[in-house]
């Protein structure tokens, strides 16, 4: 088991390193540098800024300095906003995005599993058909489009829920729902098919022959086996939620990290863009790693 963990850590570190190196060299492969014509700077000021940011040094030296800074958690200063550092931006805005993401994940997992259970228990009935239809239609709907749809109907047309900013619980509803939709239907589909598979196994019959009620059999024998499979699914879903948060935060004007990322793109704030790309990349890879590990630990067959 330990060997497996070490292997996975090695892969994680290699991937991280590859991403860090690629982003660095890609940015430096661009003609010019961040301080050329787009910013309204005079030539002397631009030269001074280059010196200050160490951009006049040979590339390899810059790379080493970059890695050193990264190791200390320094991702550089924002180029548009005086006095703001990337790590500072992350520290202040990420908690909001994290909250949004976790709320969406929670909704997705509970709703998805519940739908899966209902679909299994009522096989052949209208519930199952309805859920199947819902999941088929839902899985193709990008969270960005759903976000705007919900904003239009619940906000503009029917004026039921708030559609911007962050603070009250009501304000979290539409954004979380937009993000949670695809994960919910994915989980529902996947969980249901696994549950049906599991229920056809002989050990379910044996459990019933021991006198266990249908409910007990479902909860103690079927669910643990099916839930284990859902765990693998969660890694990619988190990636989906994270990426979706960029646009959802933009649509609902939520002051999270995603908003910063999107605006840094239009602002040409390269340090922020690069820093946040790295942050998100590392976050995603790390969470996939964690879920892998979690599943490995929980499944008796693997260890």
């Amino acid at each position: 088991m330990l060997i497996h963990i070490l292997k996975k850590i090695a892969i994680l570190i290699s991937s991280l390193w590859i991403v860090i190196t690629i982003t660095f060299f890609l940015v430096h492969a661009l003609p010019g540098d961040p301080f050329t014509p787009e910013l309204p700077l005079s030539e002397e000021v631009a030269a001074a800024m280059r010196r200050q940011h160490g951009l006049d040094q040979p590339v390899l030296v810059q790379y080493i300095n970059y890695l050193k800074n990264l190791a200390q958690g320094e991702l550089g200063p924002s180029m548009r906003y005086e006095g703001q550092t990337v790590q500072g931006i992350i520290a202040s805005s990420f908690p909001i995005s994290a909250l949004l993401g976790m709320q969406a994940l929670l909704i997705a997992v509970t709703a998805g599993i519940s739908l899966g259970i209902v679909g299994t228990l009522r096989r052949g009935g209208w519930q199952e058909k309805g859920i199947l239809l819902l999941t088929t239609l839902g899985i193709s709907l990008p969270s960005a489009i759903l976000a705007i749809l919900l904003q239009y109907f619940f906000g503009f047309k029917w004026e039921l829920l708030p559609i911007a900013c962050w603070g009250s619980f009501a304000q979290t509803l539409l954004p979380s729902l937009s993000l949670a939709a695809i994960p919910t239907v994915s989980i529902a589909r996947f969980f249901q098919s696994r549950l049906v598979e599991v229920l056809q196994q002989d050990y379910i019959l044996i459990a019933r022959s021991k006198g266990l009620s249908e409910m007990r059999t479902l909860i103690f024998h079927a669910m643990p086996n099916a839930l284990l499979a859902v765990l693998t699914y969660l890694g990619p879903l988190i990636a989906h939620i994270l990426m979706g948060s960029f646009i959802v935060e933009k649509v609902y004007a939520i002051p999270g990290l995603g908003q910063w990322f999107v605006s840094s793109i239009s602002n040409n704030d390269y340090t922020v863009t690069m820093g946040l790309t790295l942050f998100y990349g590392a976050l995603l890879m790390f969470s996939t790693f964690l879920f892998d590990l979690l599943q490995y630990w929980l499944d008796p067959r693997r260890s």
Binding site: Q201, D202, Y203, L205, I206, A207, S209, K210, G211, L212, H221, P224, N225, L228, D299, P300, R301
Partner: peptide, 29 residues
């Protein structure tokens, strides 16, 4: 009571439970 055994022993035992747990269930009955 009626006890029953099936053909494939691999699928008749719950893979995520220890043998002891599976016994405790039967003995409860």
């Amino acid at each position: 009571r009626i006890g029953i055994i099936f053909q494939d022993p691999s699928s008749a035992l719950n893979p995520v439970l220890k043998i002891q747990t599976q016994f405790l269930e039967s003995l409860q009955m």
